[in-house]
Design a protein around this nucleic acid. Structure first.
Length: 804
RNA sequence: GGGAGUUUAGCUCAGUUGGUAGAGUACCUGCCUUACAAGCAGUGGGUCAUAGGUUCGAGUCCUAUAACUCCCACCA
């Protein structure tokens, strides 16, 4: 029946092909089964997937498989996020072109062609890893439909005043040539020099010491700040100070509590803009705006002789000149954390530009996000706290403009005369304003327009995947009915960005949550504290390599580990257990099925006690496993099934195999009874394990069970308990029999004799003997005890002598 | 500075509402037993991070402390 050895690489690919060819995972539009919908987070297309993706997707896939086998109609798409900077950089790198040198449509087409190749490799790997997505439901965030959805969302929000355009200083990456959201920044420790300068007071009454790491910002200096509590400098407040090297510029000394008295000299210069604090002071004190750096990171004309230099060159030049002119009195080398753009690790600047924002941070809105976060079902529950804490601290609106070329364009033009924005009509979407013009005139009767050249940040589109999935642009009412979707999964690092923004969009558009539950997976660690990522040289643990070496089922087995949401370590030891289980499952199935050659499953007239017991025991494990799956604990669910399975192998099969082998000794009825139990229990195990290990279970199902069950794949069967009449104390009674067997095994171990060694006699003492007596032939067979005596009393087993 | 998590056997981790500390693995001792030696049976091994508290009783609840991890804020 089954091959002697299970050859995973051959079988796994065979069944993956089978599932795709037979549409096993297809969403059925016409079905009247309840739908279970998953808003799969579209992976960013920037090169390759890593084990973190496999962990996250595999864990979610187990929920999908569980729900499917519980009779749900799965809506389980696999989309790709490819409208953002990472994809643009990928295309530029691979095709050796510069995005802004060719028309946007053309570049997008090149990107789509290239991305198709990457999508296919992602898809192939997802399939190879055993995921059960419906590949026909996929989308690209750069495709026409996603663009249309995203533009429709923008227009609707803009018309409602929720999206607005404003000039605001915001983080800017000079390398990527775009503004970036504060959530896209990270800290990097860099070495720098603290320069101590003497600023001259305008009235000639002396100098004041100021320390700075960015002296190239001197031309943008607009004020000096001291702490109002600082008695040393109280007399300075209100005085005018000359800016070194730019002495025609005089700025005022102001007092603000944000100044650290013991930091540097306790006096700070405020430039527009060196950092976030400068931005806040600039706003609060209505300071003038002086831009010393342009969007390419070069000094502007206000920098005088330094104009045109890169900021870092300018810094050196300025320091030299400061030294020559005698302004510098001390230089301290320091290490300090600098905000860098997470994509390119380049330090960011603050530049003031006109940007589109979405309102998210008023107290009323924040209250709403808190309520929605509370309404959402979180797994694990503790992740909610992160979200709530983040929302409470939210103090900026969501910036969605990017000064890039590739992406979803803003469908808007501005009137040349009055500046009023003209939005594209919905029926014309998607629109690229650079290549078309509004059909109507502006209210001011002007018919000339300036197109918006910015594109939307990728989050603006990836936050509407529920609307893309639910067909918002095709049918708003149907979409509203389909939302909220049932589940979204994501990593804990993007709760605050992706999840919150998706919640915000669903609230603005549909007035509901995007999904009922959010499951937050942990990270794959290469070793204690080392996250697997492409930045580290641990790509030998790439998913393809791992699957080829260990099999997809073993990798999935490992993915179902421990409590959901915790970080997991990827080690050889961790994979060994899965390998062992696969091997055991294969051997046990091979063995059991070898007694089923001509078997036609049929409930026998009489089922022997231990056969009834093992089926009840299965039902108990089944309930426990399902409860764990309902609670999004795939690891615990798997452990429940596994625990039962090893018990089934080591105790039940050992006991029943005598009856299967020798019907001439134990009777044909006894064999059929064992066959019935084995058939039901093995099928039940195969179905439960199909959630974790879809390949090997399919092979076993196809080799035997399919002919009786009927469904073309084990993954389309329904999880159910074995139908059995209630029976008092059956679980306890059966466990007692196993206990007797364990005592005899321990006895043989102590005597250092083989397990098949016969024992002359033993006495079983128990309060109730009826069940044990019924099992006498089984006990005798498995323990090789010649004669058994029974006595009423407290449970005990008295064992005689081995016959050597 | 704010928030979250972790700390239980050599290792990886369970331990629901408080009631005699569990599994796997490793180690050790046996066993070729007609599915599986990648197997089977069995032994040993823990001041549950530390210090207090509540309780008849604390791994579990409370308070503080320590170590490690992550997120956020600050970084002139």
């Amino acid at each position: 029946m089954l091959d002697n050895k299970y050859n995973f690489s051959e079988k796994e690919e065979k069944w993956e092909k089978f599932w795709q060819e037979n549409g096993v995972y297809k969403f059925d539009e016409k079905s009247n089964k309840p739908v279970f919908s998953i808003d799969t987070p579209p992976p960013t297309v920037s090169g390759h997937l890593h084990m973190g993706h496999i962990l996250s997707f595999s864990q979610a896939d187990m929920i999908a498989r569980y729900q499917r086998m519980k009779g749900k109609n799965l809506f389980y798409p696999l989309g790709f996020d490819n409208n953002g900077l990472p994809t643009e950089l990928l295309v530029e790198r691979e095709k050796k072109i510069r995005a802004h040198t060719i028309p946007r449509e053309e570049f997008t087409q090149i990107a789509l062609d290239l991305v198709a190749k990457y999508n296919q490799s992602y898809r192939d790997l997802m399939v190879r890893a055993g995921l059960s997505c419906d590949l026909s439901l996929g989308y690209n965030t750069i495709d026409q439909r996603s663009q249309k959805t995203s533009q429709k969302s923008f227009i609707e929000l803009a018309k409602r005043g929720i999206a607005y355009r404003e000039e605001k200083p915001s983080p800017w990456c000079c390398k990527c040539h775009t503004s970036v959201a504060s959530a896209e920044l990270e800290d990097k420790e860099l070495s720098s020099v603290f320069n101590f300068l003497n600023f001259r007071l305008a009235d000639g009454s002396g100098t004041i010491p100021i320390a700075t790491t960015r002296p190239e910002f001197l031309p943008a200096c607009v004020a000096i700040f001291v702490n109002p509590e600082d008695k040393r400098y109280a007399h300075l407040v209100g005085k005018k100070v000359k800016v070194p090297l730019f002495e025609e510029n005089e700025v005022t000394v102001l007092a603000d509590s944000k100044v650290g008295i013991d930091k540097g000299t306790g006096i700070v210069m405020c430039c527009t803009f060196g950092d976030q604090t400068d931005v806040e002071w600039w706003k609060e004190y209505h300071l003038p705006l002086k831009c010393a750096i342009d969007d390419g990171g070069r000094m502007t004309e206000i920098a005088g002789k330094y104009a045109g230099m890169k900021s870092i060159e300018a810094r050196q030049a300025v320091i030299e000149d400061l030294k020559t002119a005698g302004y510098i009195f001390k230089q301290d080398p320091i290490m300090h954390a600098v905000k860098v753009h997470e994509r390119c690790e380049e330090p960011i600047e603050f530049l003031s530009k006109k940007q589109w924002f979405i309102r998210t941070s008023t107290p009323e809105l924040k209250q709403k996000w808190l309520e929605l976060g509370d309404e959402l079902e979180w797994h694990p529950e503790s992740m909610k706290a992160r979200y709530l804490a983040w929302v409470k601290n939210l103090n900026q609106d969501w910036s969605i403009s990017r000064q890039r070329y590739f992406g979803v364009p803003f469908p808007v033009w501005y009137c040349k005369k009055c500046g009023k924005p003209i939005f594209a009509r919905e029926e014309d979407l998607p629109v690229n304003p650079l290549s078309s013009m509004p059909k109507e005139k502006c209210e001011c009767r002007c018919s000339e327009f300036v197109p918006e050249s910015d594109v939307m940040d990728t989050w603006a589109t990836s936050s509407i995947t529920p609307q893309i999935n639910c067909g918002w642009v095709e049918d708003e009412k149907a979409c509203a009915k389909r939302m909220p979707m049932d589940m979204r999964f994501c990593g804990r690092d993007i709760i605050t960005t992706w999840s919150l923004r998706t919640i915000i969009k669903a609230y603005y558009h549909q007035g509901c949550l995007p999904w009922r539950s959010l499951i937050v997976n942990g990270w794959v660690m290469a070793d204690k504290g080392v996250k697997i990522s492409k930045h580290l040289s641990n790509s030998k643990m790439g998913p393809t390599e791992m699957i080829n070496e260990y099999s997809a089922d073993v990798i999935r087995y490992w993915c179902a580990i421990g409590a959901y949401g915790r970080d997991v370590y990827l080690t050889d030891d961790g994979l060994k257990d899965g390998y062992k289980l696969l091997n055991k499952l294969w051997n046990a199935s091979k063995f059991v099925l070898s007694f089923m050659e001509d078997y036609q499953p049929k409930m026998p007239q009489k089922i022997l006690p231990m056969d009834r017991f093992i089926m009840h025991k299965f039902n108990e494990a089944f309930d426990r496993a399902c409860a764990q799956y309902e609670n999004v604990e795939m690891g615990y669910a798997k452990a429940e099934v596994e625990k039962f399975f090893w018990n089934f192998c080591d105790n039940y099969i050992e006991l029943a195999k005598n009856r299967l082998y020798k019907p001439e000794v134990y009777g044909q009825q006894a064999k059929e009874s064992a066959q019935w139990a084995c058939y039901n229990v093995l099928l039940g195990i195969i179905k439960l394990f199909a959630i974790t290990m879809p390949h090997i279970t399919e092979e076993i199902y196809q080799s035997f069970f399919r002919q009786f069950v009927g469904e073309i794949s084990v993954h389309l069967t329904t999880l159910q308990k074995i139908e059995l009449p209630q029976e008092q104390d059956i679980l306890q009674n059966g466990d007692d029999v196993f206990e007797v067997v364990a005592r005899v095994r321990a006895f043989k171990g102590e005597k250092k004799v083989s397990m098949k060694t016969e024992i002359d006699q033993m006495t079983i003492v128990a309060p109730k003997l009826e069940f044990l007596k019924e099992c006498e032939p089984d006990i005798k067979a498995v323990t090789s005890v010649r004669q058994i005596n029974f006595e009423v009393g407290d449970f005990d087993v008295k064992i005689g002598n081995p016959i050597l």
